[in-house]
């Protein structure tokens, strides 16, 4: 049961990855790509780590740290990249 849920989490996470990464290929603006990348990519990564957490619950401190740093860093990084790329004159 738990095994199935963890595989489902990872599968959905990878679908999110593709969803977030696919817009990178087109000729859209940087901010559009940044939006899809930061939302879908971070969600996908977090889902994959949750899937791993269900698979091996005994190493939870490490995986929880991974989830937290993913959430915080990717948000901050999104802001920094948007600020740096749009303040050109």
């Amino acid at each position: 049961m738990i095994n199935a849920i963890s595989y489902a989490c990872m599968g959905v996470g990878i679908v999110f990855w593709f969803w977030g990464t696919w817009p990178l290929v087109g000729h859209r603006s940087v901010l559009y790509k940044l939006h899809s990348l930061s939302v879908a990519d971070t969600l996908g990564s977090m889902l994959i780590v949750v899937g791993l957490l269900l698979k091996i619950p005994r190493e939870w401190p490490l995986l929880v740290l991974a989830i937290l740093s993913l959430a915080i860093w990717n948000t901050v990084l999104g802001y920094v990249l948007a600020y740096c790329s749009s303040s050109r004159k």
Partner: peptide, 18 residues
């Protein structure tokens, strides 16, 4: 474009560590 490359880099960095 430099910034598109930076986006790709950030994506690759998080993907490889996952």
């Amino acid at each position: 474009d430099v910034w598109q490359k930076m986006l790709a880099f950030s994506s690759i960095a998080s993907k490889t560590s996952i």
